[in-house]
C-alpha cells in the first residue's frame, strides 16, 4: 500500500516560514509520517534538507513544480 503523504502548504509563509511549519508537523505527527512541504521560497530547497539531515529524519523527495518547491520528509524518530 502506498504511504500517505500529509501536505503542509507553506506557500507565502514568511513567518513562521516553511521550515518552522515542517518542524511543527514533525513534532505533532507520529513516527513514520511523510510530510510534503510546499514553499514559494527557493531557499527552502536547501534549508529544509539541511535541517532534515541534522535532525536525523529522511529526505524522500525534493523537487520544483510550477514555481512551488516541494520537499518530502519522513519522520524517523
Amino acid at each position: 500500500m502506498a504511504e500517505t503523504v500529509k501536505i503542509v502548504d507553506a506557500r507565502g509563509s514568511f513567518c513562521p516560514g516553511p521550515l518552522m511549519e515542517l518542524i511543527k508537523g514533525i513534532r505533532q505527527e507520529p513516527v513514520g509520517t511523510i510530510l510534503e512541504i510546499w514553499s514559494s521560497d527557493q531557499g527552502s530547497a536547501k534549508d529544509i534538507p539541511e535541517w532534515v539531515q541534522r535532525a536525523k529524519h529522511e529526505l524522500v523527495k525534493n523537487f520544483e513544480e510550477d514555481g512551488v518547491y516541494k520537499i518530502q520528509v519522513k519522520k524517523l524518530r
Binding site: F14, L19, W51
Partner: peptide, 10 residues
C-alpha cells in the same frame, strides 16, 4: 533558535 538563522524572517 530552531532553524538555521536567528529568526524565521530572513
Amino acid at each position: 533558535y530552531p532553524i538555521g538563522r536567528v529568526h524565521s524572517i530572513e
